[in-house]
């Protein structure tokens, strides 16, 4: 029993230690961010790898999510004779929740794992050490550009997700089911608020961008320099990012609804 308790305690301490180390890395990343903007092509390159390379998965998933939303929404709404509200349903669900959240989850799986594996391997093969011995700060040169690329890419991907999702919903609702074209858009416009819904969605995705990218970077940076260590770190990136995104989503949503 005592052994169990002490193990539990040690695990908790390890968690807290990792949280602190992550916060420290975040702090250093912000401090050494100058170079990622002075030499913006470093960041640009990472936007290409995290953002552009995620385009396909984001667009395809958004399309299907939008279509499913429209199908499911229609099924329920028509029972209450308000199938015109399908546009509102699709748009609000996407802009407020699914756009930022699903994008962040996909981002963690697609770009987050890539970042963790890359940095973990750079550490394993002593590339980070080599950089440090060349008097080049790896946080400024490797971590910060990837961080800012993630923070920039995430809202763009989320906006794209929402827009493509709405188009997917439109395709199912209007040509396929036969909801009136005008009603679809006008109901949507009457009920989706720019400030309360769209801007809040963008804020959410910005926060998710910071969280997901930072978690991926920290896990890579903290990975034990072995093949096994890197593979575990990659798994942890997905698990921790997903949980963090869902938890943060709840916190942010409650803030936004209250304020």
């Amino acid at each position: 029993m005592l052994g169990f308790l002490s193990e539990l305690g040690q695990r908790m301490i390890a968690r807290v230690w990792r949280l602190g180390a992550g916060a420290h890395l975040f702090f250093l990343t912000i401090i050494y961010s100058g170079e990622s903007f002075r030499r913006f092509h470093l960041t640009l390159r990472e936007i290409y790898f995290t953002g552009v390379m995620s385009l396909l998965i984001i667009i395809v998933s958004a399309f299907f999510v939008g279509m499913v939303l429209a199908l499911q929404g229609y099924n329920t709404l028509q029972k209450y004779g308000s199938s015109e509200a399908i546009g509102v349903l699709v748009a609000l669900a996407l802009v407020r929740e699914l756009g930022p959240v699903v994008t962040a989850l996909l981002f963690a799986g697609r770009a987050g794992t890539a970042i963790t594996a890359e940095i973990g391997l750079m550490k394993t093969t002593e590339q980070l050490s080599a950089m440090e011995m060349m008097a080049v700060n790896p946080i400024a040169r490797v971590v910060a550009p990837r961080f800012w690329a993630g923070v920039i890419a995430m809202p763009i991907l989320a906006a794209l997700f929402s827009m493509v999702g709405v188009l997917g919903g439109y395709l199912v609702a209007v040509p396929l089911i036969g909801v009136d074209d005008g009603a679809f858009w006008s109901q949507m416009q009457a009920n989706v608020d720019f400030r309360d819904d769209i801007v809040n969605g963008v804020i959410k995705s910005l926060v998710f961008g910071v969280a997901c990218t930072m978690i991926a970077l920290f896990e890579g940076f903290d990975a034990p320099p072995t093949a096994e260590g890197v593979s575990h770190a990659t798994t942890r990136t997905v698990v921790i990012s997903s949980l963090t995104v869902l938890g943060l989503d709840f916190v942010l949503t409650s803030f936004m609804l209250v304020v």
Binding site: M122, T125, E126, Q127, A130, M133, M134, A135, N137
Partner: peptide, 19 residues
């Protein structure tokens, strides 16, 4: 330390080239 390291070159055991 960075100033000192500019005077040094280190060849790592496995090269540590940027892949």
């Amino acid at each position: 330390i960075y100033q000192l390291r500019r005077k040094m070159g280190l060849l790592f055991q496995h090269g540590a080239l940027f892949t």
